[in-house]
Design a protein around this nucleic acid. Structure first.
Lengths: 329, 329
DNA sequence: TTGTAGGCGTTATCAA
DNA sequence: TTGATAACGCCTACAA
């Protein structure tokens, strides 16, 4: 039994290292490194440069990132932690923005679904050692867990958008329009719980301040449209009939308007509905509280880049929220 | 100016290595490694073990993944390449499934939005050297680009679900229901283009086989509901009035039914609509072609694990598609 | 039960 | 213009 066969069960061929390239080219490892990394200071003869590049390509040399990172003492990975891959329009836009900004600076952004029931922070650490961690909204990173970041930097996205304020704005607007009995559409999705309870708390606070009863809260599961009809029924059957509903987000608000339509009713006439986010499909007729993605994204990108540069991040002042009045409330 | 201050602009403190832990504990580096990695064969006294663990925690030691990977000659990172973070319900489910399966085997799954206008494969390689790459559907990885994977393994998700077949099933069903002039709702989203054109090709092929005119194709942008109404108008105004529409996916199909409702029309009565995917919100009333996520996911997980184990992956036979008849067609 | 020593692939430093 | 050498932090065969 030889090792020459190329069967799938054979141990894969040894990695082609830069030393192999050096040997095959008849130059030193250092020269290979200079050529491959286009090191500015060094002047390499065109002949040597071409030879090295050709040899590397012929041998199929690919750099081994861990070796590079070990030598450099750092990795260029930025790890974005999410609770769920289905993260919503607004967060997706933020991720993309971050991704582009980081790529321009030579970093790679990698997204990981962090589930502490599946793996602890310290385990994750043995597998990836990023230059920086971005914990996306919806994910609560405890200080204890954060301690595993050690020399690494952490940026928490959660807490930057004032979600309670969004809820307050919803309730205040509905009150201003004359509504005195409010409902609240709360998402069943586990990954939204953190944000959703903040928004609901804002609505509750506003109701208290305005002298209203607390909102009639109904759970709506975006994955199960039946729950929309149950919610509509519950609001209609409440002791004091609910005349306006604040919805956790636009997606659910749109489901509510669709549910009303299916019953021959109209959002904004038979029941006021207001959302949060201003997603594209809300832009036809949904009254909502917009999150200014551009401003929010810029602020977060600035902060992330500052952290990577060991600079003091700017405190973020703006609240990124704006009421947009359309037809549904 | 001393180096003792802890300002943010100061160069971060030197990494705490396992050697530091060894010195502080008064044991050897080997012992520290054994304790930290829970190496089975070695018997370490309880006292030593506790001491090492306490010291490591006090010093704030966190392992440096690149060093580990260099020593081991491999990383435990599985890189999933996507074209866009907004990847859709079905793909999100697949990612989660893969993630869980890989975590059980000690790998981390990291998702990267690969954009070849932003960075080449070989650049990506200098930054991450994963054990395996999974190219998600919607992303075409050329053989040239794949050559950069070198010793690394590549699994292409695209091509496993027979998208053309899905289109054929849509057209065949509409034909069987008596429709002779078909429309097609094509998504404007760039990241869907690859899959969408396959599905459309299937519809075209079926039309040809059945002796129908090619479908009247209209673009629908999920981010812009206006395009829904334009499409409905175009189908109504076609030389031969379109009586049934095959939609790229359920999301767009649902937008179409909503658009019809907004005009006082009913999907399934005034215009037949059929989708693909069977997403949750389609399950009320949408006729669609279901992709069996469980079977599909299992097949992909099996293949990925086989590749990681250097085994020959099983060829995937099933086609994972099933027609589900509801109200809209 | 613990220690010693060597090497993984890369790059910075210094020397030629 | 190029080469030799020494680290980076971690793991493990072998020795004690």
């Amino acid at each position: 039994m030889t090792n020459e066969t190329d069967q799938a069960t054979t141990v894969p061929a040894r990695r082609v290292t830069s030393a192999d390239v050096a040997k095959a080219s008849g130059v030193s490892r250092a020269t290979v490194s200079y050529v491959l990394n286009d090191v500015p200071g060094r002047a390499i003869s065109e002949a040597t440069r071409a030879l090295v590049l050709r040899t590397a390509s012929e041998l199929g040399h690919v750099p081994f990132a861990p070796a590079r990172s070990l030598r450099l003492g750092r990795s260029d990975i930025v790890l974005a932690l999410v609770r769920d891959f289905a993260i919503g329009f607004v967060s997706n836009r933020l991720l993309k923005r971050l991704d582009v900004a980081l790529a321009e600076r030579g970093y790679v952004m990698l997204v990981h679904r962090f589930d502490d029931s599946l793996r602890s922070m310290s385990e994750l650490w043995g597998l990836v050692s990023p230059a920086l961690v971005v914990a996306m909204g919806g994910l609560a990173v405890t200080d204890e867990a954060a301690s595993h970041f050690s020399s690494t930097k952490l940026m928490r996205v959660h807490g930057i958008v004032p979600h309670a304020k969004a809820g307050e704005m919803q309730a205040q607007y509905l009150y201003d329009r004359g509504h005195r009995v409010l409902g609240y559409a709360f998402p069943s999705t586990a990954s939204l719980e953190l944000i959703a309870s903040e928004r609901l708390a804002g609505v509750r606070r506003a109701c208290e301040r305005l002298g209203l009863e607390p909102p009639v809260v109904c759970n709506v599961d975006p994955d199960n449209p039946e729950t929309v009809f149950d919610a509509l029924d519950a609001w209609a059957a409440a002791p004091e009939k609910v005349t306006a509903v604040a919805s956790h987000n636009d997606e659910i608000a749109i489901m509510l308007t669709a549910g009303l339509a299916a019953r021959g009713l109209t959002a904004g006439k038979d029941l006021a509905v207001i959302g949060v986010d201003n997603i594209p499909s809300a832009r036809i007729n949904l009254t909502t509280v917009e999150i200014d993605i551009d401003a929010w994204g810029d602020a977060i990108v600035d902060n992330v880049l500052a952290l990577l540069d060991n600079k003091e991040p700017e405190p973020i002042a703006t609240d990124f929220l704006r009421l947009i009045v359309r037809d549904t409330a």
